[in-house]
Amino acid sequence: MNISVLGCGRWGSFHAWYADHIGHTVTLWGRKGSGHLAALMEQRKNEYLTLPESVKLTDDLREAVSAADIVVISISSQQLRAFCRDLAALGLDLSGKRFVLCMKGLEIGTGKRLTTVFYEELGSAMRVAVWVGPGHVQDFVRGIPNCMVIAAREMKLTRELVDTFSSPLIRFYYGEDLLGTEIGAASKNVIGLAAGMLDGFGYSSLKGALMARGTHELSRLIEAMGGDRMTVYGLSHLGDYEATLFSPHSNNRRFGEDLITGKPFAKLAEGVYTVEALMDLSREFHVELPICATVYAIIHDHKDPKEQLTQLFLRATKSE
């Protein structure tokens, strides 16, 4: 199978490494002038992994897309709409290709899911899925296995992609609720920010309460949006809590901790953007999201973190 991965950051380079690892023919694309791509071209490695020579590197988007049966997109979620327009501008017939979105987020300003953005820009007839779930690049490249989920609007596509990407290293499950899978995957990064803030204050024992209440409030949102409220308890959200709320490799957890301790943090933490979209959805669907609202108040309104977190976990007595 010819697989092209678009985006050569941490996860993009991993998806290329993984697809090659399980026997596919792989092209990895990065933007011209990208520091990530330049480092890979020069040394075939980054801080996470070493790419074998069998993975082709290119900055030619047309070449990468043309060569692919399956196109994996692994970029910042907020860049997806503009990137889809770049794909459309190529003038290629994309109808026979399968696309996989390997990122987690919601569009700021609209609250739209990433597959919705993709369909709006490239057409509702396109075949697109999402690949989400727990795991860290650092663990996968050491041979530590994990479980992940692929979800699409049509189960036929989900099954095709699970068959293509399954291996002893990653066991894939079929996602049957695309909406819930996308909302769950995006929102777990916001819960990760809150977890990091608790770590920063030395309140890590509150993570149990955070997990219980986080899943509850987001299950209510998913249900209000028309999804299955139980999806949030699967791999896209609760199943990803260990990797996001506890692991030292979690960018979102680290961002929250460093915010409290006053350290600079330069890497991408998608939850910072996702919480804006979640607050828009909270208003649109009239669902209270107290954890998300607290994270938003701390990060975007610059409210006092200790006061906000104390209010969150010591709210007026109520039924669980």
Rank of each mutant, 00 (worst) to 15 (best):
residue 6 L to S: 01
residue 9 G to A: 11
residue 15 H to Q: 14
residue 15 H to Y: 14
residue 29 W to Q: 09
residue 31 R to L: 15
residue 41 M to N: 06
residue 48 Y to N: 06
residue 54 S to V: 01
residue 67 A to E: 07
residue 68 A to Y: 04
residue 69 D to R: 08
residue 80 L to M: 07
residue 83 F to A: 03
residue 84 C to A: 04
residue 89 A to F: 08
residue 92 L to G: 05
residue 94 L to T: 12
residue 95 S to K: 14
residue 101 L to I: 11
residue 101 L to M: 09
residue 104 K to C: 01
residue 107 E to C: 03
residue 110 T to H: 02
residue 119 Y to D: 14
residue 125 A to R: 15
residue 134 P to E: 05
residue 151 A to C: 13
residue 154 E to L: 08
residue 155 M to S: 12
residue 166 S to G: 13
residue 175 G to C: 06
residue 176 E to T: 11
residue 182 E to N: 08
residue 193 L to C: 11
residue 194 A to E: 07
residue 205 S to V: 12
residue 211 M to W: 05
residue 216 H to C: 05
residue 218 L to S: 05
residue 221 L to H: 03
residue 234 G to R: 09
residue 234 G to M: 00
residue 234 G to S: 06
residue 235 L to M: 02
residue 258 D to P: 00
residue 266 A to F: 11
residue 267 K to T: 12
residue 268 L to H: 08
residue 271 G to L: 02
residue 273 Y to E: 11
residue 277 A to V: 04
residue 277 A to M: 02
residue 278 L to C: 00
residue 279 M to Q: 13
residue 281 L to C: 01
residue 281 L to R: 03
residue 284 E to K: 10
residue 286 H to G: 01
residue 289 L to A: 03
residue 291 I to H: 07
residue 296 Y to N: 03
residue 301 D to M: 12
residue 305 P to D: 11
residue 312 L to P: 06
residue 317 T to R: 07
residue 319 S to R: 15
